[in-house]
């Protein structure tokens, strides 16, 4: 297996606040990686660094063998990094279909954009909503749209940031099945999720972030059994119930 995204000694500070603390992380192509950690641990910031929305204060980020630390977000998307935002950013003045079309044209292959969108609409269950204004969607549908829009750019690695919260049991099952399908198609998935049972149903490796640092990683079951993680996990559980 080859590494698709690699972080070497990546740190990010906002003034005196260190939000990402010397993170080393390598993601294999086609891997399903889970990320957990308490609120404010710096998980979303990690996605902003990988996606190029933020520049690291220190360290380098690689796409395969290429240093992409200085590459703007738009070009990282074209390389194959597709991301969702934890707080959805739909293009509210367009329909759901147009949201995907825009992503497919600018971030993927413009020629096959309509077919790509059709496939993504099917896959994510958004087809019945295709012609609705994105601004009229509720929060759960907006989260779904976040995932769909990232998928429409035909990424090689998909970054999902807390998309399972608030779903019913059945919806959560359907989401897990969808992400498994995506992963089975050969796409690498990095998934930040508080709904741990959903996460564990998909990922092959789990990473724990606390106060910006990578504090544990490995086989999901082993990581979850780690007493230190259990300690943090109690915190996560409390968040989850909130």
């Amino acid at each position: 297996m080859t590494q698709i995204v690699t972080l070497k000694g990546v740190s990010k500070s906002f003034g005196a606040l260190t939000v990402t603390d010397a993170v080393d992380l390598a993601v294999e192509s086609g891997e399903a990686l889970g990320i957990i950690g308490p609120n404010g641990a710096g998980k979303s910031t990690l996605f902003n660094l990988i996606g190029g929305a933020l520049q690291p204060s220190e360290g380098r980020i690689y796409w395969q063998d290429h240093d992409i630390t200085d590459l703007p977000a738009a070009q990282r998307c074209r390389l194959g990094i597709g991301r969702s935002f934890q707080i959805p950013h739909p293009f509210v003045g367009m329909t759901v279909y147009e949201n995907l079309l825009t992503a497919a044209i600018f971030g993927g292959d413009a020629q096959s954009a309509p077919q790509t969108c059709r496939r993504v609409l099917e896959l994510t269950g958004l087809r019945p909503k295709a012609n609705l204004q994105a601004g009229s969607l509720g929060l759960l549908e907006r989260k779904r749209l976040e995932m769909a829009r990232a998928l429409a750019t035909s990424p090689k690695v998909l970054l999902l940031d807390e998309i399972a919260g608030g779903l019913t049991e059945a919806e959560c099952h359907a989401l897990v099945a969808t992400i498994r399908d995506i992963h089975a198609s050969g796409m690498a998935v990095i998934w930040i999720e508080h709904v741990v049972h959903a996460l564990l149903a998909v990922v092959e490796r789990l990473v724990v972030i606390d106060r910006g640092a990578l504090v544990a990683q490995g086989d999901p079951k082993a990581v979850m059994a780690d007493p230190m993680v259990q300690q943090l996990y109690l915190g996560i559980d409390a968040d989850d119930a909130a």
Partner: peptide, 12 residues
């Protein structure tokens, strides 16, 4: 509608 989202889907 959203600059960060636009960049994230490949719009320069």
């Amino acid at each position: 509608d959203s600059e960060p989202a636009s960049e994230s889907i490949g719009i320069r």
